[in-house]
């Protein structure tokens, strides 16, 4: 997961990615249902070991549509990082 951590740690928390995200729109602006939230939940999990119910909720509601990636000034591969992180969660025994 080093590559994923390297990628998500570039996030500047600018939020430019959120307005295009279908799931944050559908959730009526819940931050963990959007790309900025997901990227930072992954960072939190990999850096500080914090994984909660809301982490799972955020990560598993992503549609992997990549709309967010076009907006990101840091060039983070948001959808593929989320996909990799899901594998990691499974390996670690986190089941939804």
């Amino acid at each position: 997961m080093q590559e994923v951590l390297k990628d998500v740690s570039k996030c500047a928390f600018c939020g430019f990615c959120e307005w295009v995200c279908p799931t944050i729109i559908a959730s009526d602006n819940l931050r963990h249902y959007g790309p900025r939230g997901r990227v930072n939940l992954i960072y939190m999990a990999l850096k500080d070991g914090i994984i909660t119910e809301k982490t799972m909720e955020g990560i598993y509601t992503c549609l992997l549509c990549r709309a967010c990636e076009l907006q990101c000034p840091a060039g983070i591969k948001i959808a593929s990082d989320i996909r990799e992180f899901r594998k990691y969660l499974l390996e670690k025994g986190y089941v939804r």
């Binding site: 931050r31 963990h32 930072n40 939940l41 939190m44 999990a45 994984i51 909660t52 119910e53 809301k54």
Partner: peptide
């Protein structure tokens, strides 16, 4: 939720 509070 701990992660959510950290996120906000």
């Amino acid at each position: 939720d701990e992660a959510l509070i950290k996120l906000y």
